[in-house]
């Protein structure tokens, strides 16, 4: 189970911890290792970008079935949640275990109002992409300047 909370006031400390972890890891081509700061990390990580008409949200969810992910928009909040089932088989014979399984939940505020009726979410090759058309009121528009 890795439903986690984000506390923005702690963010700078986690960033420093992450950087230290990165430097330690940079010595070898080795497994990512756990640190005490992991509890501050949210899953799945999200990337968000936009153009004039749409907002795009993406998450890496390898091995997650489409039926196990839900995407909801309520007002200005986007909620992505679901579960990742273990596919690695018999737990007794693990030689190495780095992949995590369980329930996940992320909620983020969208940068602009969106048209909730026209949201599309696709899961392809383990990558979730949510495309949210901006609400008419939020679209950038060019204002014609009249000569008088």
């Amino acid at each position: 189970m890795f439903t986690l909370m984000r506390n923005p006031t702690m963010r700078p400390y986690h960033d420093v911890a992450r950087e230290m972890s990165r430097m330690l890891d940079a010595f070898a081509n080795r497994a990512p290792f756990d640190s005490m700061f992991d509890a501050a990390v949210t899953f799945p990580a999200l990337n968000l970008w936009e153009d004039d008409h749409k907002v795009f949200v993406e998450a890496e969810l390898p091995g997650v079935a489409a039926k196990d992910v839900e995407v909801k928009v309520h007002g200005n909040e986007l909620h992505i949640f679901g579960k990742r089932e273990s596919t690695s088989g018999d737990k007794r014979n693990f030689q190495r275990q780095e992949r995590v399984f369980g329930e996940f939940s992320r909620m983020i505020s969208l940068p602009t109002p969106v048209d909730a009726e026209k949201i599309e979410a696709t899961l392809k090759d383990g990558v979730l992409t949510v495309i949210l058309p901006k609400a008419e009121t939020a679209k950038a528009r060019k204002i014609a300047v009249k000569a008088v």
Binding site: N93, F94, Q97, E98, R99
Partner: peptide, 24 residues
Amino acid sequence: YVPRVDIVEQGDEMLIFADIPGVT
């Protein structure tokens, strides 16, 4: 990026599961 892996011994084989989202 380094993919996360599980390595499991199962019967007469070793299995490596690697998370490589976006790869076909």
